[in-house]
């Protein structure tokens, strides 16, 4: 599937593809992050969210999203690596001295090592999937929602996974570092790749992109870090206090999980 052979596709299309897939993956991350953050609203909210994902459109949604994501990843990886490959071929003899020109340049370790950060992210994603998606969901059991429905207690899974597992938290920190690095260049670059910049907007887009990258990485880290550090606050066996804020939060999702 990862075709490393010379692509018969124009360099501009290739960039469009990296950009569009990259941006889509960023959008996915944003959605994923919002979802993750619901954990702080309490186990019922978080579990409800998980329940929602798996049952929305009778479970079709998650299937489609998974296939789509897989496709986007594949396209992203293929097109991005093919850009990287062209680079090796286009400069067979290397410079003896390498430097940064500064000024308008956006060349940095982040931009230079996109493949390294990308591949690290890939490895991380596999570990991440093993940890959660393919974890033993039976083991954590279920939780009873306010309306009496039994849902898988993903909250417990998450809290148990991170609690006391310094190694894993460290891994997440490193991985998010790479993600941040990837996106420090990636976000603005993708906007440029799909042709949405002008001379006047480039500096701003670059800044906004970098801020976004940091925000995403920090956002994702909040969860493992806080769970790890604030043992008392996150109780794997916590039982929600129904009738408070949770109702409000869940209102939009009511037809699927509460009704």
């Amino acid at each position: 599937m990862i075709n490393l052979k010379e692509p018969q596709i124009s360099s501009v299309c290739k960039k469009m593809l990296t950009g569009i897939t990259g941006l889509s993956l960023v959008l996915f991350l944003v959605a994923h992050l919002i979802g993750n953050l619901t954990l702080f609203a309490g186990p019922d909210v978080f579990n409800a969210y998980a329940q929602f994902l798996h049952h929305f459109m009778h479970g079709m949604f998650i299937r489609i999203a998974e296939v789509g994501l897989l496709g986007f990843f594949a396209l992203h990886i293929w097109s991005a690596l093919s850009v990287q490959r062209s680079k090796k071929k286009a400069r067979p003899s290397r410079y003896e001295v390498n430097a940064y020109a500064g000024g308008a340049s956006k060349k940095s370790i982040h931009s230079l090592y996109m493949a390294v950060s990308g591949i690290t992210i890939l490895v991380f994603i596999i570990i991440h999937l093993i940890n959660f998606k393919y974890a033993d969901h039976e083991a954590v059991g279920t939780m009873t929602m306010e309306n009496g429905i039994e849902v898988t207690n993903v909250y417990k899974l998450v809290v148990l996974t991170f609690q006391g597992n310094f190694g894993l938290v460290l891994l997440y920190m490193v991985a998010m570092g790479f993600l941040c690095s990837h996106l420090l260049h990636g976000i603005w670059s993708a906007i440029q790749s799909v042709g949405l910049t002008r001379p006047s907007t480039i500096p701003y887009l670059n800044l906004v992109g970098m801020a976004f990258a940091v925000a995403l990485a920090v956002g994702f880290l909040l969860l493992p870090l806080l769970i790890f550090m604030m043992r008392g606050t996150f109780d794997p066996n916590a039982v929600p206090e129904y009738g408070t804020h949770a109702r409000l939060m869940l209102a939009p999702l009511a037809p699927w999980i509460l009704g």
Binding site: K14, K15, A90, S105
Partner: peptide, 17 residues
């Protein structure tokens, strides 16, 4: 593309020089 130039990664080093 047919001349053997690499693809662009938006490093912007070109604009700087």
């Amino acid at each position: 593309d047919s001349e053997g130039f690499g693809d662009c990664s938006n490093h912007a080093e070109c604009e700087a020089v």
